[in-house]
């Protein structure tokens, strides 16, 4: 390599270094700001469910529960739909429809969270409430549907998260399916496979990448803030009921960060942010790893 190229490498590399160091800086700053809470509560912070600013007792279990529960529910709803769309667009769709469909899913992904939240408050929540009221009493007796029909609560949050995750997962899944070699499908057809069987083989071939896409969607759902805080009811409790108002980690930061009246309270909120950061780091790392392994088989670079 020529010496001038080294200069080029160093100068662009410096910017790349800035990018990488931001991630480190975020981790460092969040740890620093949450030290007070980490030292005071230790591991109990994650096991206890008392969130009591008066007594200075902070336990984050309800927020972790709410975050995981809402995200997993959203994934259960979103994954089949997202994979269906990915398959439809990449395998089945007439060419003429492809571009508009891709555009529409991209638009769905691009609508700001706050707009979904606004729509959630005024359209989705009242609809969910009537649905909850219409549910027969025999079902209402189940723990899954217990509690008063408020509209705001876990169900609304999961639904709105699902809507937001679908385009995200389907886009990545589509990219992954595109990396499946054409020959693979042709071979299936040549053996007399039906469309379903050929696609099933393609999906099987792309399975790691698709799991990665789903996890990427999961990462999105975990950190989603505005739309969720506007519909989930913001009540820290560990409940299996879909009707119960609950709380998520991102939502509690958005709601209480400016009003945390003492250092410990603020540190507890930052610690929630720190853990959210670490969780998304792990989930994203895993999913990118899966997608890269998959995509690497074909082109040696990321599909997402």
């Amino acid at each position: 390599m020529r010496s001038r190229d080294i200069g080029f490498r160093l100068s662009t590399g410096a910017f790349a270094f800035v990018l990488a160091s931001i991630v480190v800086a975020i981790g460092f700053e969040l740890s620093r700001q949450s030290m007070l809470s980490i030292q005071k509560f230790g591991f109990d912070f994650w096991r206890t469910s008392t969130w009591d600013p008066v007594a200075g007792q902070f336990g984050a279990l309800p927020f972790i529960w709410g975050t995981l529960y809402s995200s997993i529910l959203a994934l259960l709803i979103a994954t089949p739909v997202a994979i269906g769309i990915a398959v439809f667009i990449s395998e089945l769709c007439p060419r003429i429809l492809r571009t508009p469909l891709v555009f529409l899913t991209e638009l769905l992904a691009a609508i700001p969270s706050i707009v979904y939240g606004l729509w959630g408050i005024f359209v989705l929540v009242p609809a969910v409430r009537s649905l909850e009221i219409a549910l027969p009493d025999s079902l209402r007796a189940l723990p899954l549907f217990s509690g008063p029909p408020l509209g705001v609560g876990m169900l609304s949050a999961a639904l709105i998260l699902a809507v937001m995750v679908v385009p995200f997962t389907s886009t990545v899944a589509r990219e992954v399916l595109r990396t499946v070699p054409l020959a693979q499908r042709e071979a299936a057809y040549a053996l007399g496979a039906t469309q379903f069987e050929a696609i099933r083989a393609a999906i099987f071939y792309a399975r790691t990448g698709i799991v990665g896409a789903v996890m990427l969607g999961f990462g999105r759902a975990l950190g989603e803030t505005m739309a969720v805080t506007m519909v989930i009811g913001n009540n820290p409790q560990v409940s299996a009921s879909l009707f119960a108002p609950q709380y998520t980690m991102a939502a509690v930061i958005a709601n209480e960060f400016t009003e945390a009246a003492d250092e410990l309270y603020l540190a507890a909120l930052v610690e929630i942010g720190l853990v959210l950061f670490i969780i998304t780091l792990v989930v994203n790392g895993l999913s990118r790893g899966l997608i890269w392994t998959m995509a690497g088989r074909k082109s040696g670079r990321a599909a997402a």
Binding site: L19, I26, Q33, G223, I253, G273, T280, V283, R288, A302
Partner: peptide
């Protein structure tokens, strides 16, 4: 760097706000 970029892309916006 590529990993950092993808990670940063996945960091919830609220966490970046706290930072």
């Amino acid at each position: 760097v590529r990993f950092a970029a993808d990670t940063l892309n996945g960091v919830p916006s609220i966490v970046i706000g706290v930072f």
